[in-house]
Design a binder for these strands. Sequence first.
DNA 1: CCTCCTCGTGTAATCGATTCCACGAGGAGG
DNA 2: CCTCCTCGTGGAATCGATTACACGAGGAGG
Lengths: 368, 368
Amino acid sequence: MASIKDVAAEAGVSVATVSRVLNDHPSVSAEARTRVLAAVDVLGYRRNAVARSLRTDQTHTFGLVISDVLNPYFTELARSVEEEARALGYSVIFGNADERPELQDHHIRNLLDRRIDGLLVSPTDGGSPLMLDAARAGTPMVFVDRWIPGVDVPVVQADGRAAVRDLVAHLYGLGHRRLAIIAGPAATTTGRERVEAFRAAIAEYGLTLPDDYIGQGDFQAESGRRATERFLDLPEPPEVVFAADNLMALGALDAIRARGMRVPEDIALAAFDDIPWFVHTDPPITAVAQPTGELGRAAVRALVARIEGRTPKSVTLPARLVVRRSCGEPSPEPSPEASTEASTESSTESSTEPSPAPRPSPAQRSKP
Amino acid sequence: MASIKDVAAEAGVSVATVSRVLNDHPSVSAEARTRVLAAVDVLGYRRNAVARSLRTDQTHTFGLVISDVLNPYFTELARSVEEEARALGYSVIFGNADERPELQDHHIRNLLDRRIDGLLVSPTDGGSPLMLDAARAGTPMVFVDRWIPGVDVPVVQADGRAAVRDLVAHLYGLGHRRLAIIAGPAATTTGRERVEAFRAAIAEYGLTLPDDYIGQGDFQAESGRRATERFLDLPEPPEVVFAADNLMALGALDAIRARGMRVPEDIALAAFDDIPWFVHTDPPITAVAQPTGELGRAAVRALVARIEGRTPKSVTLPARLVVRRSCGEPSPEPSPEASTEASTESSTESSTEPSPAPRPSPAQRSKP
DNA sequence: CCTCCTCGTGTAATCGATTCCACGAGGAGG
DNA sequence: CCTCCTCGTGGAATCGATTACACGAGGAGG
């Protein structure tokens, strides 16, 4: 493969001049420029990014380490991250941690060795020494979706509290009182926060969240199934199961079906994370939708800011409730809405208006 | 960040010795080795992959350019590719072409500039000059899923013909005679092959595939919706719609719902590509399942073989039919089976036995 | 005791770019 | 006409590794 030297020879100039042309440095004569460009064309020269990176100490690349590619939420996140990165002149190397800390470390190590300019991470756990060291050593880093407390790294995340409150209002309005949740791993912030948001919202209605109604999951479908089976084995099973992510909701649906029960007639189901498929499940699933695309874009902007030496702030965007049929009561959404939902990029993501859910005044109820 | 020079100084040896230790070259004394290792530890040294790649002219990385990350089929493919690559000591850089040739070119250019060791491509189109040049110039390349005729590049793909024949048998057995297909882009092999397989299978039953019953799609949900609407507007609409990929099936489902029609009572639906969500849609969708994981692994093995100088052969693995309820007749699969289906890695992928579908002897029927 | 090999090590070239510095030509200003 | 600046250019150092080659020490064999 032709190098800059070959181009220089072909054009009859020095390598310095070729390099200047390639980086359009101002002080190059028009004549030299055209000669170089011609030579580049003739030889089919392509700049060697490896050599360039070695010299300039920047790769114009960053790493994105996510917890599970098979989770459509992360897939969409990855997609929006790549898009925004491309728009800003960066490439992205993905690492799939598969919810396994050691795999996460493998990818971080690998990315660090490749001298990526920055790291976007959705941590699987509480933070390995490797990751913490990298952060402290000054590797530009931004957490997205999940984060690790006690580290000085900007966080880009969705705040689901209002939407979860809307969800509980919706459930309460439908007459449900025994509400259960399948939590994510306690090592993750989203694993903990979602339970807390749920518990707080429930408390506003004077209800409680007994330990029996907290299933321990790991954000994978299988754990959702197991947790749901345990719920159903309870002497007094819950009326509603709220899964803290979409895959566990899928597992829950499986478990419910396996018992020959129906949603929502026998038990209601809701999920955190909305995905296009939820429109088409039987029944369509009520979910808390994160502004995934915007999250990814904001994370990239923050990371690029850090790479360029600025100090970005953390970003929190609101999630919103999307009511469908899985909690009872026919969905109020007209059929055209189903069409809109299915499209990849939901254009109605701005969400100033939190939700169409019926909302009794909770403050009054929680007092007595 | 510490370099090999710093390590050499710390250990009191030359950079050559450090390098030897790091690459465990035999001729290094035990004493020097321990000193170097200690220095590496003290300084927290990490080898600079950029510099190493420049010198050795290999990156231990390859690129995977796929057509659409949001398509669960490709997501799973990407996942299995990364896994196998990691097992063989390679990293993978993904490029999402979003079914757009110019984006595909962007990624190929980018990957080539980064001097990846090889390229795994599922081409969006008939092949850009850039890609063809790269192939001819000797860049190790392997096509996966889709391919381009006339280029000497190994192909790893699934053969869906038997499964499609099984599908048609299943449909015929259920009494359906007017069968329509939503095709993928004619520029892709899968876009063409699936139509041909369908047409051939239909012919065995003495049926034909009129032009009106061939919808033109682009493997995206929206196109599936449009094609289905056109089918439904026909004076004599088809009894079955077969979508050539899972996203178009989703779009078709949308379009059918929007008219207030039901699957399978009013119209049957089947898809190419099976995905976990198809178990949970309303109704569960009958699909042709590719051995996605095995495809990804085989592709990686072939590419690594090429990189290492061997000349791998193309690989074709059989797809198989998975019957569910979307074509009529209650699914014969007992409910435990639904559980198995939902798991990420279907362990029953070997598929010696093609399908449980009823299969009249088609040869006799096609003769008269 | 001399010669030859082997072994461990260091010096320096190299990969393909970027960029500092020096240099010569030519124009402007005195 | 001389001086000084600007502009375009080239030479060479540099980034952090790998590796060919040289070299000295020490052991084996004659």
